[in-house]
Design a protein around this nucleic acid. Structure first.
Lengths: 228, 228
DNA sequence: GTCTATATTGTGATAGAC
DNA sequence: GTCTATCACAATATAGAC
């Protein structure tokens, strides 16, 4: 049997509302609620009803503003990603010293993630389950095509590393390994927090103490690993 | 309106079938298919129909063997977790040298995960979205209560670290930080693989080359970080 | 813009024949 | 043990009143 094409709602653009008032506030409330729910349960596990309840509005309003669950989840993903990735590109791409970059990235990430504990688990989960859908979103979040930006960034790092190797103050390492080692040490403890909580018996307070200690030790640990 | 309680199927135990034949093979096929689908899509995103198709059987048969999606996903999680966590406990808890443990853990994990690329993303995702449900499963996978095993393991590590600190061949580090740094460097690249693929433009072959290089460099990198 | 009510489809689960 | 057919309910999405 042939299914008749589903009727489609005409395109609206409530975001472009001219009079900023209760409407804009509502849209933001919905987005904030969606963010909370999607971060806890993931896109597949989240329920529109729960988002509506958390936002204190009706479920129909979610569709009024964002049309589909798909679009709402995309909006959340992009918002979250755009708070994480640009910092990486800007910090590592800057024209500061290598040690300065290491210190800065560790400080930024540990601080930021301490206040957004669910972000790493959420991002890894989404990227893992929908890598195809996520590619364009990630480009949007960075604000440029990573395939253009990253090679330049890696070149810069490679040059800085080579200088230090010639000085004899660092041993050789590929820039990719450098970057991935650094962000592994920063991000993984947050992504694996539920596991650490169980395995090491850490409650929330213990985890925060653990991170505070890490802020102090990680720069030295990382630089130590690079000594010749 | 009062909903009548859903009728429940009487408890069966097909796993305990006395005659191992086609039945056992089917159960294993279903489990393997479920593993593949749950790893790709996560528990919430997976569809029983897709698992049935992948196993080459009917959807009703999944319920015959595992009763509910919940139980099937629990079986998969425990199977996956039991291949990852015991290695950690056994390796770090052994009475070998600290350097030996580092080398062994890196080798084991990078090899193992290279052949199970989806495992880290899957585990982090499940732990993140269902930490409460997962606690008991994890205990089952380790084969003992982590709250008993881990403190002993950390004590052992602490003693070994202290010895080396007195020797002057290592600088002080808390055993928890030691363990988490080590597994961060091993596991994160796999968990973040979809992101690395996009950000660094790595295809599958490039990623495997990246890991191969890592096998060689990571032990030295990590030991370097611990030098005084 | 926001609501209630309802349509429509998806999905886990069960009954019952073989 | 395995299948087909179907149920029951959950969940997304839409219509239309206000």
């Amino acid at each position: 049997m042939i299914k008749p094409a589903r009727k489609r709602k005409p395109v609206r653009s409530p975001t472009a509302a001219k009079i900023p008032g209760r409407e804009a506030a509502t849209e933001q409330r919905i987005l904030a609620a969606a963010r909370a729910v999607f971060l806890r349960h993931g896109t597949a596990g989240a329920r529109m009803q729960e988002i509506a309840a958390e936002a204190g509005v009706n479920q129909a309003l979610l569709h009024y503003y964002f049309r589909t669950k798909e679009r709402l989840s995309a909006a959340v993903f992009q918002q979250v990603a755009s708070r994480i990735f640009p910092a990486l590109v800007q910090t590592l791409g800057a024209e500061t010293s290598l040690d300065g970059k290491i210190n800065h990235l560790i400080a930024i990430y540990l601080d930021n993630l301490s206040q957004n504990l669910f972000v790493p688990g959420y991002l890894i989960s989404e990227l893992h389950h929908h890598p195809e859908r996520v590619q364009q979103l990630l480009s949007g979040a960075i604000g440029a095509d990573p395939q253009i930006v990253m090679p330049a960034l890696l070149k810069t790092l490679e040059r800085q590393i080579n200088e230090r190797v010639r000085d004899g103050t660092m041993r050789p390492i590929k820039p990719q390994q450098f970057v991935i080692n650094l962000i592994s040490l920063c991000i993984f403890p947050f992504a694996a927090r539920p596991m650490l909580s169980i395995v090491f018996g850490m409650n929330d307070a213990a985890f925060m103490r653990f991170i505070e200690q890490r802020k102090k030790e990680l720069p030295e640990f990382f630089r130590g690993a690079l000594r010749p």
